[in-house]
Design a protein around this nucleic acid. Sequence first.
DNA 1: GGATTCGATAAGTCTATACATATCTCGCGC
DNA 2: GCGCGAGATATGTATAGACTTATCGAATCC
Lengths: 241, 241
Amino acid sequence: MTDRATDRPPGPTTPKAQGIAAEVRRRIVEREWRQGDRIPDEADLATEFGAARATVNKALQLLADEGLLDRRRRAGTRVAPAPIRKATFTIPIIREQVEQAGMAYAHRVVSQRLAPPPAALAVRLGLARDARLIHLVTVHEGDGRPFQYEDRWLNPAAEPELATVDFRQMSANEWLVRNAPYLRADIAFHAANASARDARLLDIAPGRAILVLQRTTWNEAGPITSVRLACHPGFVMTAEA
Amino acid sequence: MTDRATDRPPGPTTPKAQGIAAEVRRRIVEREWRQGDRIPDEADLATEFGAARATVNKALQLLADEGLLDRRRRAGTRVAPAPIRKATFTIPIIREQVEQAGMAYAHRVVSQRLAPPPAALAVRLGLARDARLIHLVTVHEGDGRPFQYEDRWLNPAAEPELATVDFRQMSANEWLVRNAPYLRADIAFHAANASARDARLLDIAPGRAILVLQRTTWNEAGPITSVRLACHPGFVMTAEA
DNA sequence: GGATTCGATAAGTCTATACATATCTCGCGC
DNA sequence: GCGCGAGATATGTATAGACTTATCGAATCC
């Protein structure tokens, strides 16, 4: 947009593929092409837009990833009958989340000890009942008030450096995000009434509704960590499509 | 890798770009290339993998989208210092959600009437206080028991066909997913203690923690719909990375 | 010393071409 | 009529080459 320079006539130079994607998206949204319709093939669109087929392919690929188009070899490209749209949210570093909200961040380790996993966890992670894990409970604070509290199990077998980290210096959340890339993650959230323990650690009344995130990450050596993250009441998680 | 023509057996022939992406991902996860490191440039990797630069570009693009790499012109490609990972979840058709859980789906329109938007909503949607919206309250049931209940405002100005749909036949949720592609969506969730109304419509005790989704979608003509979706206690939303 | 300019570099994009592959369609033989 | 194999066709993927653009870093000028 802000692209004065020598001032080429039209201006901002959007990549061609994106321009094509936008135009196709418009035709779908404005019902020029309706749900289930077959749209012209790549070669025809390439001619129409004065682009190479590879460029049109990129554009349509993009819309297929968005869920707006269904594409099959030989069968052609159709407007998805039920556009299954996806939303994405980012897994944040809690410190940054707090600081972006304009609060001063601090975190406090409530307990840390070596322990074998509870039965349910051992099953879920596929670990032996006598595996040696680190159990860590931490409260994240904003302006001195509890913001989120995490109950986390760490598996040094999958990530040896874990055994040497001082989690009072850097929270496990941040250390992991910065140092332990993972191959696979499971994420789930639900609402829960605050238990006595939740209430005490978050400094709220028992029974208040809190948002709970469960997250487990794996690398090639096995599960790295599994965490239950309880958010302060009023916490809103946002995503975009 | 498995790419001799004379040797079919291996089978599914993974695309080369994906193979390269997998190998780069492995080098990152196994710390061959550490957070913040600059990795070889596209031309070098192309030589190493015996591929064209465009193919390597595609592979690295992929990893950048995943959040594992930071790429900048001239500056080169680096392993992201804090791999900001994204998780995606799909916006489902509630009927399919219920049926996948093996329950019989039904829905029931609790109320439907034309009304101007409440002040807060008008502001949020950027509509005039006297806009004519449809206010619709629906309960989705699985095996005869309330599963989710939605409190929805629909804007026929952005989607004229809305005025003619019979929402007892097909739920607004499903009609919209199938018929009203959107350009932009806002999604947010939080936990809430069930109000008296929530409790009555979901057939639960007041105060129970419920997961609440707020979703608003727009097309080029303005906001299409804004919905508050209250899920039955115990509902778990899952996502993947 | 500090700001400015300019050239080199690496990613970003597009093109033209080629071949691979899934799958639809049609015609053949029974 | 029906199954089956042979094409035709649209997308999937890879290729080399060209040009564009952001930006780093060094040489230059005040």
